[in-house]
Simulated scan of single mutants.
Amino acid sequence: MSYTKLAATGVLALLMSSGAVMADTWRYAFEEALEEVQGKFAQKFKEEVEANSDHSVQLFPFGTLGESDSILEQTQSGILQFVDQSPGFTGALIPEAQVFFVPYLLPQDEETLATFFEESKAINEMFPPLYAEQGLELLTMFPEGEVMMTTTEPVEGPADLNEVKFRVMTNPLLVESYQAFGATPTPLPWGEVYGALQTGIIQGQENPAFFIESTKMYEVTDHITRAGHNNFTTAVMANKEFYDGLSDEDRTVVDNAIDVAFDYIIDYQDGLTEESLEKIKEAKPSMTITTLTEEQRQPFMDTADSVEQEFLEIGGDQAQAILDQLKADLEAVSSQ
């Protein structure tokens, strides 16, 4: 067993042994550091819960309790009460959630995107029952920022990704998407990515700008490419049995805290992308940051239909209905 897993096991043993005397402490794990977007959301949620109830919220940033698959399992088993995790990792359990990896499906305008996540019938009505089947209460989904490629060589089109080993999350549709882009998708746990780039095992990865900056991915890559192909989506969930067992008063506290944290994190991200890119350029002046033109993006956009068809094949029983509703939701928001 690795040191990380041993440490996580020790922490969990302590939590479980103290559960009986800490019944009013809710445990919340997420995939990022405390000062990154998921951490900021979690801190606001904690603040709201503790201000409006007698409960306290204990936060566990990335690495505290293991990798993404570990914290999801701990939430399903009831060790954790809350978890924030991208559909990139829940896609194996909930194949319909892979829809968020169809390239060029989500709008690039941040205001439109925020409204979509807040009002989408697919997200707020169709997804919760699918999560419930896995012992999870879907509390909200929110965007974390435009996804950008970071690579060791410049990228201006799919040809530049030929034979490039590109790290992706362990998500079948994301693998399909980067195969369609021309790359060699390489699923890796996040904890291994920096070292793999440093040693040349892989030559690229994707993430929002704030995450590229905070995790110093620019140190082991030389080029950032803005192809406009996606926006990073994440989901906040609760253990279903825990949530259903809350009193009406406590459930209202949780729901209200989620709503406040959602509004907060949308405002927090205003200008965050450009600010993060400026920090990257300041830290590494040689880093190139390229926004592809519409003409340069078109070959990438041309792959969207094939990835969408793959989603319909592997995306579960409700794949077509989810995709149709998402498109209807997006059209409704755009028309506003």
Rank of each mutant, 00 (worst) to 15 (best):
residue 2 S to H: 06
residue 14 L to H: 02
residue 19 G to Y: 00
residue 20 A to D: 09
residue 20 A to F: 06
residue 26 W to I: 15
residue 26 W to Y: 15
residue 31 E to Y: 00
residue 38 Q to R: 06
residue 40 K to N: 07
residue 45 F to A: 13
residue 50 E to H: 07
residue 52 N to S: 13
residue 53 S to R: 03
residue 53 S to H: 03
residue 63 G to A: 12
residue 66 G to L: 11
residue 68 S to H: 02
residue 71 I to R: 05
residue 72 L to V: 15
residue 75 T to E: 08
residue 79 I to C: 04
residue 80 L to T: 09
residue 84 D to L: 03
residue 86 S to K: 04
residue 86 S to I: 07
residue 98 Q to F: 01
residue 103 P to V: 08
residue 109 D to K: 06
residue 124 N to I: 08
residue 137 E to M: 13
residue 140 T to Y: 00
residue 142 F to P: 04
residue 145 G to I: 11
residue 154 P to Y: 01
residue 157 G to D: 11
residue 158 P to V: 09
residue 162 N to R: 09
residue 167 R to T: 12
residue 168 V to F: 02
residue 169 M to D: 03
residue 170 T to N: 14
residue 170 T to F: 02
residue 171 N to C: 15
residue 171 N to L: 10
residue 174 L to E: 15
residue 175 V to Q: 09
residue 176 E to K: 14
residue 177 S to L: 15
residue 187 P to S: 08
residue 194 Y to F: 15
residue 198 Q to E: 15
residue 200 G to P: 04
residue 203 Q to D: 10
residue 208 P to K: 03
residue 208 P to H: 01
residue 214 S to I: 04
residue 221 T to S: 14
residue 225 T to P: 08
residue 226 R to K: 14
residue 229 H to T: 06
residue 231 N to V: 15
residue 237 M to A: 03
residue 240 K to V: 05
residue 251 R to S: 12
residue 256 N to G: 08
residue 259 D to L: 11
residue 261 A to Y: 02
residue 268 Y to S: 12
residue 271 G to A: 11
residue 273 T to P: 01
residue 278 E to D: 12
residue 279 K to E: 13
residue 285 P to M: 13
residue 285 P to Q: 07
residue 289 I to G: 02
residue 295 E to S: 12
residue 295 E to M: 10
residue 302 D to T: 05
residue 303 T to E: 06
residue 303 T to V: 10
residue 306 S to E: 12
residue 309 Q to T: 08
residue 313 E to P: 02
residue 324 D to R: 05
residue 324 D to A: 14
residue 325 Q to E: 13
residue 328 A to T: 08
residue 331 E to G: 08
